[in-house]
Structure formats: structure tokens, C-alpha cells
Amino acid sequence: MDKNPLAVNIAGVKFKNPLIAASGTFGYGLEYSEIYDVSKIGGISLKGLTLLPKEGNDSPRIAETPSGILNSVGLQNPGTKAFVNDYMPKIKKLGTVLIANIAGNTLEEYAQTAKIVSASGVDMIELNISCPNVKQGGMAFGVEPDSVRAVTEKVKENSSLPLIVKLTPNVSDITKNAAAAQKGGADAISLINTISGMAVDYKTRRPVLKNVTGGLSGPAVKPVALKMVWQVYNTVDIPIIGMGGIMSYTDVLEFIICGASAVQIGTANIYNPTAMPEILADLERYFKENNLTLEELKGTLIV
């Protein structure tokens, strides 16, 4: 039997491996497809979409921090109409699982966006209720468990696609939000989004980011992410997609051991455009050498 040890099925969607590009770090996949064959990777969580086009925040939108970066893009995106008409015809040809990441200001906006992207040819939806960089970018829905449940239910009513709910770590108890997403009908949970933070220039006494605050990502957040993935794994029954500072195949293994079925890779793409195929090659070698499958390793943390 030559079963692919890295294959994973999440809510009925088949991924050839557990490496998914994290939303906001991979555009709509088209830029990286000029650099390598992106059909190699498990999937792409596409750049966050809103019903109408959004210009995002003013620059600077990025700041370097110890072991990470802060960003404050502010959900700049072309809106659902341009996404469906101009982007999807090209994105469909990439040959990997496509996940539309959607954000909004109101329940109705989430509902309409979900309806439109569901008919666009994507395989799944990731509900972004955790963007820290816009005043009403869904973060309002991501903090309180009741509103997490309400927005999850609303999107489920308006889409038949499998739904991933992406959680913010900027809450008092993430397990409550994970449980609320599951109750609302989520098919999977992804975590963590960036941790809210800021960078300051002591010489100018100004924040480095124009938006003052931003979202921290990169190796600095990995310990927080691992803890939260493990906590959520012990709380819900639905699959978990873990993310936060994954830079190498050993980082991937750690997330799988803590209970993730798959992972998303974000900041690593920004540092190195070929990070994902490089991590994948290492991961394939590891599973082959150890005669293991992803499923066998999942949630095997010994405590």
C-alpha cells in the first residue's frame, strides 16, 4: 500500500499535505505561482475578502520585531465582485485546495460575502473574525463567544461549503470561543491569528506603524499558538488547523503533536518565498524515514 502519509481530510475536503498558506501572506496565490508550482502545497487560505473593495491602512504597514513582524495592512482587497470575475478564473488553475477568507462589518455583510464566494468555485470558507487591524474588521465578532456563535451560524445558513472559523488569541479564554464556533456549526477551527501589539521608535517618539497598533506574527508567537492549539484540541471535536510562527518542519510536527490536523504557514513565506516547498520536502523525508502518518502523530502529546 503506497498511501500518502501526509494526506489529510478536513470536513470532507482532501488535502495532499497539511501545509496551507496563511491568509494575507500569499495573496491569491498568483505571485508565488510565478516562483514555484503551488499545486505542491496542501492549500491556500486566500487574502481576506470583504463584500466591497477595501483600500486598507496607510503605510508603514510593517515593523520588524524580535523574532517576528508586526503588520497592519487593514484588509486591503479587491472585493467579492473583482474576486469572482478577475481573480477566480486564474486562481482555479492553481491545482490546490482554495479557501476563501472572508471578513465583514455586519452579520449581513458576512452572509452576502459567504453567499457570493460559495458560488465562486472555492473549496472552503475561512471565517475571519479576528483581524486586529481594522476597527470593524470582524474582530468585534471574534471576542465574545455569543457573537462567535452568531456569525458562524449566519455564514452556515448562507453557504453549503465546509466552514473554518479562525480565532483570535486576543481573548481571555480561547476555549470558550472555540466551543462557541463548534456550537454555531463550524466544521473546523484555525488558530491563532496575530497577537495585537505595537512598535515604537524612541528617536521620533512615534509608533512605527501608521495605524499605531498591528498584529504580531512569526517565531515570537509560536509558544502562545502551541498552547492554544493544545487547549482547543482538548475542548472541541472538530479538526484544528494550527498556525503561529511555523518556520520549519519541526515546528509543523509540534503543532500536529498538540492536536492540529493541518497547519498554516504565514510569516515564513514573507521571509522566504520558497519556504513552503522547502518545509514540505523536509516533512516528506521525516514521515518516510520514521514510517509514520500524519494521523498517527496527531494529538500524541505526552503530559
Binding site: T25, G27, Y32, G56, D58, N71, N269
Partner: peptide, 24 residues
Amino acid sequence: RMGCGVGACVVCAVKIKRDGQEHN
């Protein structure tokens, strides 16, 4: 200030006026 350098992360925005509208 730039991130990926290849157009994917949309961090290095500048304001450009086209068709009478400002775009990042």
C-alpha cells in the same frame, strides 16, 4: 517599508491616483 517583495503580502502600499480615484 516592505514585506515579501513579490506582491503577496500587500504591505508596501503607496497612494496612486488612477481613473480619478486614489488606490493603495
